[in-house]
Design a protein around this nucleic acid. Sequence first.
DNA 1: ATCGCTGCAAAAGTTTTGCAGTCGC
DNA 2: GCGACTGCAAAACTTTTGCAGCGAT
Lengths: 163, 163
Amino acid sequence: MTTTPNTPAHAAHSERLRRLRLRVTPQRLFVLEALDALGGHVTAEAIMRWTARHYPAINLATIYRTLDLLVSVGLVAQTDLGGGAATFELVGDVPHHHLVCERCGTVTELDDALLAALREQVLRSYGFRAHSRHIALFGICRGCLAAEAPALLDRDTHHEHTR
Amino acid sequence: MTTTPNTPAHAAHSERLRRLRLRVTPQRLFVLEALDALGGHVTAEAIMRWTARHYPAINLATIYRTLDLLVSVGLVAQTDLGGGAATFELVGDVPHHHLVCERCGTVTELDDALLAALREQVLRSYGFRAHSRHIALFGICRGCLAAEAPALLDRDTHHEHTR
DNA sequence: ATCGCTGCAAAAGTTTTGCAGTCGC
DNA sequence: GCGACTGCAAAACTTTTGCAGCGAT
């Protein structure tokens, strides 16, 4: 019944869990698989849907508990993009951050190198050690900037595409 | 019945609303007053409680709708600090950002000057115009760094003081 | 065999929405 | 008076939690 996933990444995930002395369960493997397959910026709900295709008995509460665990041991990063559901991504790739467009909701990844100087200064000035992940900058992306350039003084565009 | 607030800032808030061609209602004035009185990083719930002391009939839904409006016209900034309820603050003070400690939950304000260079570079490299507010960096604050400095290899400190 | 993990169901917490009445302009 | 705004109540969503049973080690 406990059908474990069977992909190349599978063994690596098992290994990582084992090395952290965490129990290797199909649910955890499937969550890691889903994060792999879906890429970054994945909601718990999305992981749920993806996993359910291979393991229908999976439960959302388990997804949350698993993500919580994986975040706490540093295998997964929780990224908050300003509303709705939180998103998650595997740690291990190149560190990066997020540019969140408040018009169209697009999330662009921002190389960590650009933030290195800032992090260092924040550490010096505030004694605050910022992550090399997790940072989100909100603003307007290139596409929306171009599209909205002419319209500068229009109010009443309130409840449009927010998120 | 419609007791309007009576503080020095009151007139200024009325004026700002009027200038934006928005209706001046006691609810809106009270929300602005609350943001003034409570300072930054205020949740809708907190605004609700503060306002209710002077205007018991206020409704949470109204608070949300009002905040939504004020954010959309730029009078208020919505700051997301990674979970629970969103927080709000008046725009108009010196632009600043937020250092969110993931251990103790403390939010420190970060001067905008430190981010100017980053914003400029993001604009050049990505065509992305970031706000001069709203940015949140997650990490560990000075106090918690000091406290946790000795403990480096302890796992199982999972579900402690998170938020 | 043990102890942690999971499924289920229910609760908690935040935010949104429909509708009817009210009030600012 | 008109149309926007508000209160109330209910719904929609995301996330957490208690408990009993199951399963990884």
